[in-house]
Amino acid sequence: MNKLKAIIFTIGLSSMNFLIAGETAVSGTNAVSDAATNMLRGNAKFNVVATVLVLIFIGIVLYLIRLDRKMTKLEKQINQK
């Protein structure tokens, strides 16, 4: 069950890009993505570097939290016996 959740999560994450691509293709320019790109463009495009680093950090931390939870569960199983 946990694995299924993980797979759905991954598919969701990777298909988000298609959704965003579709959105911008349909409506041309939309306010939300305009505001976001303006934020990223700040300080001669330095903000996008910061964003990239934050995203990598969030990704790794989320993965570690997931692994942590699984380990706790396994520990409980082992200790029950």
């Binding site: 890009n17 298609f18 965003i20 691509a21 911008t24 993505s33 976001a36 790109t37 990223l40 463009r41 495009k45 996008v48």
Partner: peptide, 8 residues
């Protein structure tokens, strides 16, 4: 999104 003007 900022260099190629598109998220994807």
């Amino acid at each position: 999104s900022i260099t190629w003007e598109s998220w994807w």
